[in-house]
């Protein structure tokens, strides 16, 4: 079976065609942001300021890496729990954010915003930070440098493995997947 490679930033068409349960490999450019960066972005919006990164078509990876050793672009780089970003995600989705990569369940508000905007929520394997760091070829801090690991990084990724856990129609793999293996 050939690898299902998906280009990021994510086109409207690609986002629509992805279905829950698809195992995909993301290639292109994404941005990292977690709790503190989301809080700052939300404060910027409240003050009527521009966001430091473009949302339209982009994908945010909920991730705060460990420091890179010499000669490496990044340290360990696996997903953090997405639920802590649920308060901020609908606003960003309404601004055009097309994908999120993280782990764990989302609220109905996020799901509604995903459907409303034709976006996708991916899960990366939690606790596989060393493996995932191999898929990140370049990393550059582009905003909120003072936040250290929580700064926004621009990431060049090659074949970053992820599973579609919520598709643009709002189907949720976390709700359906367990049924089959329940005893």
């Amino acid at each position: 079976m050939s690898k299902n490679i998906v280009k990021v930033p994510l086109s409207k068409e690609d986002a629509k065609s992805l279905k829950v349960g698809d195992y995909v490999y993301l290639t292109g450019t994404i941005y990292s942001a977690r709790d503190a960066a989301h809080k700052r972005m939300s404060e910027a919006l409240a003050k009527g300021e521009a966001l430091p990164i473009e949302m339209q078509g982009n994908v945010i990876y909920y991730m705060g890496p460990s420091p890179a050793r010499e000669g490496r672009p990044i340290g360990s780089a696996g997903p953090t729990t997405s639920g802590r970003m649920d308060a901020y995600a609908p606003t960003l989705l309404d601004l055009g954010l097309r994908g999120m990569i993280g782990k764990g369940k989302r609220t109905n508000e996020v799901k509604d915003a995903v459907v409303r905007n034709g976006a996708v929520y991916f899960a990366a394997v939690g606790g596989a930070g060393a493996l995932l760091s191999h898929c990140i070829k370049k990393a550059q801090v582009v905003a909120y440098d003072d936040l250290g690991p929580e700064a926004i990084h621009k990431l060049e990724v090659e074949e970053l493995p992820a599973v579609v856990v919520m598709d643009s129609e709002g189907n949720d793999l976390y709700l359906t997947a367990t049924e089959k293996y329940k005893r």
């Binding site: 460990s66 340290g75 360990s76 394997v125 606790g127 930070g129």
Partner: peptide
């Protein structure tokens, strides 16, 4: 992941 972590000294999890 465990193999890479030990061999390349990248933490198992960030």
């Amino acid at each position: 992941n465990l193999e890479i972590a030990g061999k390349e000294m990248i933490p198992i999890c960030q």
